[in-house]
Design a protein around this nucleic acid. Structure first.
Length: 398
DNA sequence: TCTGGGGTCCTAGGACCC
DNA sequence: TCTGGGGTCCTAGGACCC
């Protein structure tokens, strides 16, 4: 690491987000174990987590672990509203905000010391403001890299604040279990555990080549870098979506569906996703159907069109063809979930904006201005051209 | 005890082209 | 006719994240 590296990256993560919103809106739930979602646990309050209840656990198992838990149905629109309100606080706090999901984001506060105080000062204020303006608890991790800031917030949860001082990163990181590394799930963790590797420090002691033979080339390179806190990614605004999809669980009770029944579901899915596609001003070229079967195995069938489209009928015709071809498999194995994903997304161009600018310093502000005006998805390409820099920006329709 | 809906990225084989 | 190398695109599956 560079000696001059400063811990200016904040990772802000709402605590037990859905459950916290429920406790905020219903005072009877405060201080009580709360589970959001019936079939599976979408979120559990920290009172419920104390009993071992975890996200994605089956509802039946969660109720056995914590019989006193109050189970509430999810209210997605309330969470969406709360998320927007929190993001407004983020935007008021830092110039660079990169959303990761409905309940977490990176903020870069470099260069703000003179006007806003130290990163820790800013984080303290951020937590206070989220509590005051939205009424929710939030944890913030601060470090020199995105990855480490995320680790710091995970360690500091719930309702915490943790700064990893520059120079102490590896001492902080190496005792942690490998599962803390971004990209290590159950499968990778078990591969490593089989070789006696349980801590981040042990991963750091391995060569990248050896790691690659255990878990694959890309994953090996990725983990090797993270174990040494090498993560050069900057906090960037407006990450472009690469695919969008929707799905519907059909339940396990009646896995034998006729083509007509599935077609009905498919039409509803296609209608919904095609509307979302057009609302985003995007076009797709690849249509993928996803299936889950009675034995919980999965399959996908996809087709790439010769031309990009956002037309419902075109998407439906393609999806129907894929479904027809998959029927023998579906009839054999029994279907419990049907989904559709649109991939190879491209922008729908409405024109071209040409700008002349003074390259390095102006680039960020120009990109920001364009995003503000046309939305975060509007820029597909920004090119600096030699000695006479210009910017070529396809625009969305107004 | 089989579980939701939304995503990202990687791998590997085959087709096809030069 | 056989063998070789390199590259892109498509399809399918899988791991992982929130």
């Amino acid at each position: 690491m560079f000696a001059s590296a400063k811990a200016t990256i904040l990772h802000a993560d709402l605590d037990a987000f859905f459950a916290s919103v429920e406790q905020r809106d219903d005072r009877r739930l405060r201080g009580r174990p709360v589970i959001v979602g019936g079939g599976v646990v979408l979120a559990a309050s920290y009172e419920a987590k104390a009993y071992g209840v975890k996200t994605a656990m089956s509802g039946a198992r969660a109720r056995r672990l914590c019989p006193d838990a109050i189970v509430v149905a999810p209210r997605m629109s309330a969470y969406s509203e709360a998320s927007k309100a929190v993001y407004r606080v983020f935007e008021d706090t830092a110039p660079f905000v990169e959303g990761l999901s409905i309940d977490e984001a990176f903020l870069d506060v470099r260069g703000m010391r003179r006007i806003a105080g130290s990163p820790r000062d800013i984080a303290v204020r951020l937590r206070t403001e989220v509590r005051r303006r939205v009424g929710l608890p939030i944890t913030v991790g601060i470090a020199t890299t995105k990855f480490l800031a995320k680790v710091a917030s995970a360690v500091a949860k719930p309702n915490g604040l943790l700064l990893v001082p520059p120079g102490t990163e590896l001492a902080f990181l190496h005792p942690l279990p490998v599962e803390r590394l971004w990209g290590v799930g159950p499968v990778t963790a078990s591969k490593l555990r089989d070789r006696g590797i349980t801590t981040v420090g042990q991963v750091a002691d391995l060569s990248e080549e050896l790691l690659a033979t255990m878990i694959g080339r890309a994953a090996g390179r990725h983990l090797h870098a993270l174990a040494h806190n090498r993560d050069p990614r900057r906090v960037t605004r407006g990450v472009r979506r690469r695919s969008m999809g929707t799905q519907r669980a059909l339940g396990f009770r009646r896995p034998n569906r006729t083509f007509a029944e599935l077609e009905e579901t498919l039409i509803a899915l296609v209608d919904r996703i095609a509307r979302r596609l057009r609302a985003a001003g995007r076009l797709c070229r690849t249509i993928t159907l996803r299936f889950r079967f009675a034995d919980s195995s999965r399959a996908t069938r996809s087709q790439t069109l010769p031309a990009k489209t956002a037309d419902t009928r075109t998407i439906l015709a393609t999806a129907r063809g894929l479904l027809t071809a998959a029927m023998p498999m579906i009839e054999r194995d029994g279907i419990t979930l049907l989904g559709i994903t649109l991939g190879n997304l491209e922008n729908e161009f409405a024109g071209q904006l040409e700008l002349q600018l003074n390259p390095q310093r102006a680039l960020d502000s120009v990109l920001d201005a364009v995003r503000d005006r046309y939305g975060s998805d509007s820029i597909t390409r920004a090119v600096l051209l030699g000695r006479d820099p210009g910017l070529s920006i396809p625009l969305l329709p107004d």
